[in-house]
Design a protein around this nucleic acid. Sequence first.
DNA 1: ACCGTCCTTCTACAGGTGTAGAAGGCCATA
DNA 2: TATGGCCTTCTACACCTGTAGAAGGACGGT
Lengths: 212, 212
Amino acid sequence: MTTDRFAVLTDAAIDVLAELGMRGLTHRAVDARAGLPQGTTSAYFRTRKALIEAVVRRLADLDRADLDARELPAGADSATVALTDIDRTAAGIAALLDQWMSTARHRTLARYACLLEATHHPELRTILEYGDASRAQSRAMLAAAGARNPAQAGDHLVACIDGLLFDRLIGAGARTAPPPGTAANRADLAIAIATLLRAFAGQHPEAQRSGA
Amino acid sequence: MTTDRFAVLTDAAIDVLAELGMRGLTHRAVDARAGLPQGTTSAYFRTRKALIEAVVRRLADLDRADLDARELPAGADSATVALTDIDRTAAGIAALLDQWMSTARHRTLARYACLLEATHHPELRTILEYGDASRAQSRAMLAAAGARNPAQAGDHLVACIDGLLFDRLIGAGARTAPPPGTAANRADLAIAIATLLRAFAGQHPEAQRSGA
DNA sequence: ACCGTCCTTCTACAGGTGTAGAAGGCCATA
DNA sequence: TATGGCCTTCTACACCTGTAGAAGGACGGT
């Protein structure tokens, strides 16, 4: 039932990808990781390319699910809602990012590996669905905020938020960021994201209550 | 002379890394790319790990050189200079980024590949020198600007700028960004970066001349 | 009970890859 | 001219990987 062979194998492949990198992603490694007999992955995904494409599809699905789940609370137009409380919106995004770099770390690492791979393998660009969804969301939000050029600002915003994610995912060096999975991390991210939202939404409409 | 074997090989390795990815980085591939007889790379870098470490060192050197070159014009404290003309600073950073995603695209792709690799190979973290340099620069700049928490804001700023770079480097999907290597790209980047600088430097000290 | 179909597992094999060491050649010093 | 140390090139080989196909077994329809 839940042990649908395809899902088990692609999930194992994602783990392998995160732990061993693109180089370690082999049919046999996935077999081992999934605890299934050698040859299984090879039987389900005859070529390596097929395996990678399956991984990409799975990643896109999982990410889109996460993204969609963020909207339900407010039934109406999420864009206008988001604007009325920037700090709450920022906190929501921060929570998602924090999850992606702690609980879902493997998945995120695998996604970046695939993004890099898509550079020389253009047919993998399916992943960009993920980017497209958040991009559309951002553009709509900033448009509602009255930004001068919502498409441009939205793209910039998404790129910056992705930068925050990647930076902490890699997590090297002397930086102020707290470890992923902690409330401190979510708070720190929320500060950065709120700043970004205010900056890119129009040109800070009426300042951020610094003076009363 | 200029054909120092080590440099030739590591540069070839960077090209291979950018074009074929981590998986394609083999001794023989580097030989072929460098136009040298098979076995050469293997003789200079007996193990694959040694080869990767050499690549990482080279990347760090090249990046640091680029970063340092950006400072010379103003002899004095670059931090305060940067603040007096945010747009000029943003344009400078934009030019560097544009270069990294067009002329130096291979190098940048290789760097991201190595960053991902460093996730499961901690001794590769030497690359973080690059991050550290720009981080220190950003912190100093924001501190001079009177930011409340320059260390934090500096880290956020660097992460966001890196996000802009990565986003365009991957360059997939429907986005507003012009192609790398064009003046339009530099202009677009400059807009984003100026917004970031103003947002993270204190909390936009006196707005950005929107009202005369 | 028989058959065909599917899913699973095993085995084979042609390349490719990492690594070590041998063979060959260049040049300065004695 | 010999000697020794180098840098370079070649070759060997054990191992890993991708991919294909054969063998085995479960099971529903007749």
